[in-house]
Each structure stands twice: as structure tokens, then as C-alpha cells.
Design a protein around this nucleic acid. Structure first.
Lengths: 343, 343
DNA sequence: GGGCATCATTTGATCGTTCCAGAGGGAGAC
DNA sequence: GTCTCCCTCTGGAACGATCAAATGATGCCC
């Protein structure tokens, strides 16, 4: 057994090399390209590594390889609504997917919340992260253009709506198809007057989801006139919209909502009017938030496959950082419908 | 204007030094101890930095200073319940608090979810993080003993319940006081038979909260017999417990619950029985989750000051990493009561 | 047995920063 | 004038890993 020159500090490559009786580079190869070593040497090095409890120093590795093996994710302040809870589920899924790839997720916030690109530059220039995951599932992804322009490597959760020139990898969920599932489900249960409660026209995601409602209703031979409301993503708007729709000539018997938050508003109105969700009137939300699941009665909702989104994004990240060509940089996943008591 | 030797790659200290006509070390000092420089030199260096858009390379700095300026936070897989949503609010608060300190939050998951200390070792040995924030707000903090034993620097959200020898910094929320707020509130509204729906006895946090109920009820001269139920943290348990309590001889007129999840179960039972929350029977939850806020009727709930918890923890982190003495390593914060429609 | 390709391993340089010791220059004291 | 001190700044070394190229060992063929 050879003596360790260092007594207190953590073992380094050199320590391991001495212990195993090989050179530094051989230890490095044992870690990074084990197939270069003769099996018996590899075993000897491995043993030394285990004995010393060695882990390569990340800072040194990062410096030499010019890579940090970190991906940045900007989390904006805790607005407590279902949008954020969706985001949180996504963060978990992302951390889970990166686990096996050797990457880690670094969270950051902008100093100036209004600036969509604040915070990215500094992290990239200082080589703190290799790339970013950008998410803006509600407004589209306005960051994208800026980041692409500056040559920042990133993958996006959310498609580049207007921008046909975008060439960054992205993954998105087919909101339109999700709403179609909801409409089919409701029509299958005998509903013919199915209302839409959505966002303002400038929200491209909202319009995409709405188009699922419009088209599917027409495919079923049903009318959509007088059955649509638009507003912000708040519980209050949902409540207001439901009131207005219920007061109209031909009140709807079902509501498809652009988000769970809005759906909760609809439920509140039904409650106030003594209408029983799932019996008198059906309601379907979007996002399958915790709030939807624990509500009484539990809310039927469109569920985004966030776990799969994360896996695909991490796959793209790997390609991007290895400079592998990405033939088809966009991927659209299909959501499912979690049927519960309100429909 | 001096010529840049490097054309493509990012500017380094040497680039800036050349540009400003000083040595590398002077640029380094301009960043780390500006008071060492003569004002005009400092200005010249600053100008060069701005002109070149220089940011110090973190890997190199980390290597030399043996510090990564990252704190690790283990997030376990997305169990979709209110406990997790609490955790998410905390993550946001933590990222926000670290923002001004130059620290960033690195998320990781364990390979083996059952092992409470898996994942920590490797990150620390590889110098990927300087310290950890550990959270286990439901079961107490079993990690603490292990981590402390191995000399891992960390701060905890949650007090070291049994362990009086623990010397790591921690911050916790006074659950007992929170429940007392709830009891006072309900008694003030005329309730005399206030039930407790809580966790099993081995959950120390649950017992702490419960003690608030027991003691406060007695202080008000009210009985607690036949008014307590214990079980897991699920909606189903809450529903079952409420049924049993309502079927007893002297049915309670109010429920104080150990969590929002459990409270949602109670609300479900009330709904099934046609009892109106807030009118016939009062309900108070714990955590002030989104689900509580958007429920109809909205749930009164005890709110933990997570933002403040995060600030205190980051303060402790700073002390810990600067090796400043920490005279009083524990801090207990007081929650508030968010009064809503169910009480 | 010499020549030559192949495999396994080593050696020296390098990434970009901070630490450390010391150099230069001006002010003040004698 | 020169000695000392202090302030400002500089140059070399080091952090711990990987890259690129050189070296030694091995086998094969004629």
C-alpha cells in the first residue's frame, strides 16, 4: 500500500494515480474512455478510486472541457395559480430526466422580471451553464428570438408560434388535440351546447386550444355561436364568463375551459347558482393541476405529458451540446384526458 | 485602441488586462477588491470590462477558490399533493433569496429515492456545490444526522426534532402556534366542538400541530375528547375521518386539519352529506395551497411564511460558508391565518 | 531477426482564475 | 540625499482536470 502525500484534503487524480501506480492520464481515461485501458489496469484504477472515495473535481473538469454540465432554468416569482403549478410539475420532470445524463438543473431568476432575457447573458458568458431550457407555456416563447439571435444554446418547451425561421429544438403539447378530446368526451355524453371559456385573442396558445373546440364542434354538426367567452387567466374571469353564458338565451350544458384556473371560476358560479357539476352541467379544465384533482367534485381536465416533454427536451439538449445534427427540431406530444366527476 | 489577440472566443482576464493596459491581477482586483486600486485605474479597467463584455469564467474561479457558489436542493419525484406544492413555493422563495447573494440553486434527485442521503455525497465530493438546503417538512429531518456526521455543510428547513445535539442552522415554522390561531378563530366564531384531523403519532410535526389544538381548546375551557382523528396525509383519510367524527354522539361543528390535503377530504364528506362549509360546519386547513385558494368555497388555511424562511436560511448559509460563528442556530417563525369562506 | 504497425501508457502543456511574494515609485522624516 | 514606509501594481505558481503528442511494449510478417 502506497502512502498518501496529502493528508486532509480531498483526493485528486494524482492521488489516485499514485495509489494505483499509474499516471494521471490513465486515471482520467479510466473515467472517460475506459475502453482504452487494459482490463486489469482498469480494475486496478477502479479499486484505487473506490478505496480513496475519489470523485473528479467538477471545477477543474469544467475549466478544461469548457462545459459545466449544467442547464439553466429561469423560474419567475411564485404567482400562485395553476400555471405555476404546471411549471413545478415540469421542473420535477426535468430534474428527473437529467439525472441519468450527468446534467443538473440550475435555477435562476431575473433581476428585472419584465425583461424576458435578463439573467441569461451573464450565466452564459461566465460559462456557468451550457444551455438553457426556456418555458413560457402561456404567452408563447418570446425569449426564443432574442436568445437565438445571440447564439445562446437552448431548447424550448413551447413551439415558436409565429416565427417560421426558428431553428432551435422545441417540444410542445398539442393543446388543440387536447381540447378535441374534451369535446368528444362531452358530446359522447350527450351534450350539444358545449361552451368555450378561453383567453384573449393575442394568446396564441389559447387560440390553438380554441380551434380544437371550434373545429370539433363543427365536425359534430354543432353550432358554436353565442358559446364562446374570452378573458384573462383568472378565477374571477371564469366565474364571470360562466354567468354571462348561463344567462344567455340558450344556456350551455357543458363548459370546456382553457385552464384549470378558469374552470375553477366556472365551478364557483355553478355552485352559487345551485347547479351540480357533473349532473346538471359538465365542466372540463386544462392542465390537470392538483387543485383540479382535490376539488369536490373532482374536475375533469386535459393532462399534459410533462414527463415525456422533459425526456424529449433532454434528448434535444444532448444533441445540441454534442453538436449532433437535429433533423426535425420540433416535436408535438398529445395530451390525455383525466376524466373525473365534473363530466 | 489595442488589438485583441483572440478573435472568436470569449474575453478572459488577460484580454481585459491587455485592453486596459494593466496586469491580470489588477483586473482580478478590480472585480474582487476594488478598494485596492487607484480610482482612475479602476475606472479604466471597468471601462475595458464593459467594452469587451467580459464575465469572469466561473469554472476557473471555482477551481482556484475551491467554491462553486452553488447550493444543492434535493427535489424528490412529483407526488402530486399539497405537500409538494408547499415545497414548490419554497423553491421559488429560495431562488429569489439567493439571487442577491451570488449563489444559485442546483436541483438534484436521488437515484435511490428511499435512501435519504443518496446524492449528497457525490455532489459534495466533486465540489459541485458548497452546501445543501435540506427540507423534509413532513417527516422531520432524518437527513440531518447523517449529513452532520459526514461534515456536510447544510442548513435545514425544519427543526431537528428529537436530536438535541444537532448544531446545524435551521429555520422552522411554529405549527403549534398556527393551529392555535385556527382554534382561536373558530372559538371566536362561536364554535365549541372543534375537531382535530391529523397525522399518525410518529409524525412529530403532526404532534406539534396537534398540541396547539389540545392546549388551546383546554385554555378555552373546551373538551377535546372524542374529537380527534389520526391517519395518513391523504384526501381519502380526511373524508373517512370526517364521516366518523360526524357520526359520533356529539358531532363537531368545526374541523381543524393538519394539512390542506386532509381538509379537502373533510370538505368532500361535507359535500356528500349536504352540509355547507362555512355555514353549517367550519373547516380550516394547513399550508394555504393553491387548491385551498381556488376551492369553492375557498378554504381557510394556516399559511407558512416561506419567503421569510428562505431569507433566514440564506442568511445562515452565508454565515456557514464564511465560517462566521452562528450563536443561535435555530429560528422559529410564526405562521398566519388566511381566513376564507369555509370558516 | 529486423522492420513496422498497433496498442497501452506516459509526459508536458493548457484551460482562466486567484494566491503569494515582491517590485517600483512617491511621500515624509531625518 | 537617503532611508523607510506605504500604496499600487506586477509576474510566476498553483488549483485539478483533459488534450495532444510522444514513448515504450507487443505482436506479426517476411
Amino acid at each position: 500500500m502506497s502512502r498518501r502525500t496529502t493528508t486532509q484534503s480531498a483526493p485528486t487524480l494524482a492521488t489516485v494515480a499514485e495509489e494505483a501506480g499509474v499516471s494521471r492520464q490513465t486515471v482520467s481515461n479510466a473515467l472517460n474512455s475506459p475502453d482504452l485501458l487494459r482490463p486489469d489496469t482498469l480494475a486496478r484504477v477502479q479499486e484505487a478510486i473506490d478505496r480513496l472515495g475519489y470523485s473528479p473535481n467538477r471545477a477543474a473538469r469544467n475549466l478544461r472541457t469548457r462545459a459545466s454540465h449544467l442547464v439553466g432554468l429561469r423560474v419567475d416569482p411564485a404567482v400562485e395559480d395553476s400555471a405555476n403549478s404546471l411549471m413545478d410539475r415540469f421542473v420535477h420532470a426535468l430534474v428527473d430526466s437529467t439525472r441519468t445524463t450527468g446534467y443538473h438543473v440550475l435555477l435562476f431568476t431575473a433581476d428585472d422580471q419584465e425583461d424576458p432575457v435578463d439573467g441569461y447573458d451573464e450565466l452564459l458568458r461566465s460559462a456557468a451553464v451550457d444551455a438553457f431550457v426556456v418555458t413560457d407555456t402561456y404567452r408563447g416563447t418570446p425569449h426564443s428570438a432574442f436568445l437565438a439571435e445571440r447564439g445562446v444554446p437552448f431548447v424550448a418547451f413551447g413551439r415558436p408560434w409565429g416565427d417560421t425561421t426558428a431553428s432551435h429544438p422545441w417540444v410542445d403539447v398539442d393543446g388543440r388535440a387536447g381540447v378535441m378530446l374534451a369535446v368528444d368526451h362531452l358530446v359522447g355524453r350527450g351534450h350539444r351546447r358545449v361552451a368555450w371559456v378561453g383567453w384573449q385573442k393575442n394568446a396564441l396558445i389559447g387560440e390553438d386550444r380554441r380551434s380544437g373546440w371550434v373545429d370539433r364542434m363543427h365536425e359534430h354538426g354543432l353550432s358554436t355561436t353565442q358559446l364562446s367567452a374570452r378573458g384573462e387567466d383568472t378565477l374571477e374571469f371564469g366565474a364571470r364568463a360562466a354567468k354571462a353564458l348561463l344567462d344567455a338565451d340558450q344556456a350551455p350544458t357543458a363548459f370546456v375551459c382553457v385552464s384549470d384556473t378558469v374552470a375553477m371560476g366556472v365551478l364557483r358560479t355553478l355552485h352559487e347558482r345551485g347547479l351540480r357539476p357533473g349532473q346538471d352541467v359538465a365542466v372540463v379544465g386544462f392542465d390537470d393541476s392538483i387543485a383540479a384533482q382535490v376539488h369536490t367534485p373532482a374536475l375533469t381536465s386535459v393532462r399534459q405529458p410533462l414527463e415525456q416533454v422533459a425526456v424529449e427536451l433532454v434528448g434535444f439538449l444532448g444533441d445540441l451540446l454534442a453538436h449532433r445534427p437535429i433533423p426535425e427540431p420540433g416535436k408535438v406530444l398529445t395530451p390525455t384526458l383525466s376524466v373525473r366527476a365534473t363530466s
